[in-house]
Simulated assay, not measured.
Amino acid sequence: MPSSLNPLEQIARRWQPSARFVERAALVAVVMTVVIVVTGGAVRLTQSGLGCPTWPTCTEDSLTPTREMGINGAIEFGNRMLTYVLCAVVGVLIIAARARTPMRRSLTRLGWAQFWIVMGNAVVGGITVLTGLNPYIVSSHFLLATALLVVTVVTWQRAREGDAEPRDLVARPIRQLTWLLVGATGVLILIGTVVSGAGPHAGDARKVHRIPLDWQEITQLHVDFVYIVLGLSAALWFTLRAVKAPAALRRPVIEFLVVLLLQGVIGYVQYFTHLPEVVVGVHMFGSCLVLIAVQRVLLSQRERAELPAPVAAPAPAQPVAEAAGSSR
């Protein structure tokens, strides 16, 4: 009976989204995740981290910021509201992936993974406010957003390919070198998070506890890892060229190198100009692009074909005697 179906099944019976629609929904989730990261950085850089001093409401007596809270309250509350927009985008993705025939469980699972990361990060964001911008919680907040970006990019890729088992397009040593590049990039982003937690942009004009490390020394370690990642990406490109890999495999490595070099230039500019807020914000946006670019390098090295359509079983042969009797 239709009444016994859950809401997603009922939607699936009435709506058949195209593969293109699902792919675009996945891409919008990637874009919205980047927006959340950048606007979250704007909250910290404009000293609006405690613009709404409590959570889940903005004040003890008001769900929204009051006039007295000024621009800082509006900025912090606006970032909270963007979480609902992101939830709506993820919800559309889940519904579209579930409604499409044949249903792709890989996409619905990735969509639900996005949903739960968003929910978990919303709670961590609330704890960030309630603990007065504890730098370790703030760093966890950013790292969860980074994890969400990883999942959204994977989902976007999966929406553009089939469900067959993945087939590697490169030899195992090249795949291992690529994973080493991905791991080093992850450490690079992690160290950058520590730099933010120890640096001068605490997120509020009042005195806020910082990670008790010399942020300039951590910055030097961050720079060292930039050179390590540059070396690994150059080595990967030369290796792919040496084995005459197709341009489709070499192009993402070039794109990653370009993004990484631009990010390095921005990093040097922000350091020698004493960390102006706008440049730091651009650097945070660049970190998202670096993460997306390195994932594209990894995901370009394998392919998934469409699963073959199931073949209907032939109807059982009718016995001759029965067929003769039925013809009378």
Rank of each mutant, 00 (worst) to 15 (best):
G264P: 03
L275K: 07
M284P: 03
L291T: 03
Q295T: 08
V280G: 01
E255V: 03
L275V: 05
V259W: 02
L262P: 09
V280R: 01
F272W: 13
V297T: 11
V265T: 03
E277D: 15
L262N: 13
Q295W: 07
F272K: 12
L262H: 10
V258N: 07
F256W: 02
R302F: 15
R302T: 12
G267T: 05
V269M: 09
V294F: 13
F272Y: 10
V259S: 06
E255W: 03
L299R: 14
L289A: 09
Q295P: 04
E255R: 07
G281E: 07
I292H: 04
E255A: 02
P276T: 05
A293I: 05
L298S: 15
L299M: 15
L257H: 03
L260H: 02
L261T: 05
V280M: 01
V280K: 04
V282T: 00
A293M: 09
Q270E: 10
G281C: 08
L299N: 13
R302K: 14
P276G: 06
T273H: 15
L260A: 14
Q301L: 13
L275S: 03
I254S: 01
Y271A: 09
P252L: 07
I266Y: 14
R302Y: 15
H274V: 05
I292Q: 04
I254K: 00
F272D: 12
V290I: 03
T273R: 15
V259K: 03
E255D: 05
V282W: 00
M284E: 04
G264W: 12
I292Y: 03
L260Q: 07
L298A: 15
L261F: 02
C288Y: 05
Q295L: 10
R296C: 02
L299D: 12
V297K: 07
L262S: 13
V269C: 11
F285P: 08
V278W: 10
G281P: 02
T273M: 15
Q263H: 14
